[in-house]
Design a binder for these strands. Structure first.
Lengths: 168, 168
DNA sequence: ATAAAGCCTACTAAACGAATAGGGTTTCTG
DNA sequence: CAGAAACCCTATTCGTTTAGTAGGCTTTAT
């Protein structure tokens, strides 16, 4: 899966809405300004997010956008799938399963593709806006406590020694 | 990371060359025929694989292509990075690390992207052509034995109960 | 009434993806 | 040594996608 510029904008906008959750509707202009996104393009993205029922709009003067669910119940996978399509590196999961069944010659290759998509899904289907938007101001009633540097579960802290091999 | 049609062709061609490893050079036409790939397009791909020194060519009549290393020493990540670029879902690993350092607002998001890329890298940097090309005829001197259904390490056997949620 | 918002469709320029075309160069073989 | 058989390499094409921009329409607060 490739995340496009548009996909990144969508994620950033959603993070911003998560930060300002329970502050009522936020205007497109304010989101665009705060996140430094092209306003008209953002408008299209929010429209899409609204049609997918991830956000809701308030029309007319004093209108704007807000999340339809609490940040802790919106997974990154939902946003990414909506804007950039399936998580699999090639085709989608269903297609890969079918190829694994039918294309004996390349079965093992598609199996690897499916493994990659499952690894991505595992992460993105378990990470929510609450995990990444730095707004544990709302309901942080889980786990003992953590002074600063919250969301320790999501940030693997340096991710450890990394197989680096030239490019990438 | 998104694997393009071209990337898939490259992987298929390499798998084919792996199967016919130690049989000398194979003509483009034969690869194209056996794998059912557009011949002229495949030619470009092989040229690229040659320039990246993953394969070598024999020119003139009776010429063709062959792997430069044994299949067990060619990782899928090498082919994918060459043809389709970095494994990260957005930018590349280096860029993501830099964004994690510099963009405090979106730090956690980029961290998630990096996790996804690391998960993909872990799989693709550890899977070789030998693992997926079904040619354990060469040097199968590892692990006790396995009658049929070899390469058990690579095929997670159904991948277990899968978080399925509508699309993907 | 009017201004402030979101709604929605259309358009565009540039880049990318997937090929195709065709002549050039090298090498085997008779 | 003359073909023919291969790979070599650059250019071109055509359709799609990406990343926007434009602008009028509708709804609502004041």
């Amino acid at each position: 899966m490739k995340i496009s510029q548009k996909g990144l904008y969508a994620l950033q906008a959603m993070m911003m809405l998560a930060r300002h959750h329970d502050q009522g509707a936020i205007r497109i202009r304010d989101i665009a300004y705060e996140e430094v996104l092209p306003e008209k393009f953002l408008e299209l993205i929010l429209l899409e997010l609204k049609n997918a029922r991830l956000v809701e709009s308030v029309r007319g003067a004093k209108g704007g956008y807000q999340l339809r669910r609490p940040p802790s119940e919106i997974h990154l996978s939902e946003i990414i799938r909506l804007i950039d399509g399936p998580l699999a590196p090639f085709g989608d999961a269903e297609q890969l399963r079918s190829l694994i069944d039918r294309d004996l010659e390349h079965r093992a290759l598609y199996q690897v593709f499916l493994e990659v998509r499952n690894a991505a899904a595992k992460i993105l289907e378990h990470t929510t806006l609450a995990d990444i938007s730095g707004e544990n101001l709302s309901k942080p009633r889980k786990r003992p406590r953590q002074k600063k540097n919250e969301r320790a579960s999501v940030l693997p802290m340096v991710v450890s020694g990394n197989l680096r091999k030239g490019r990438e």
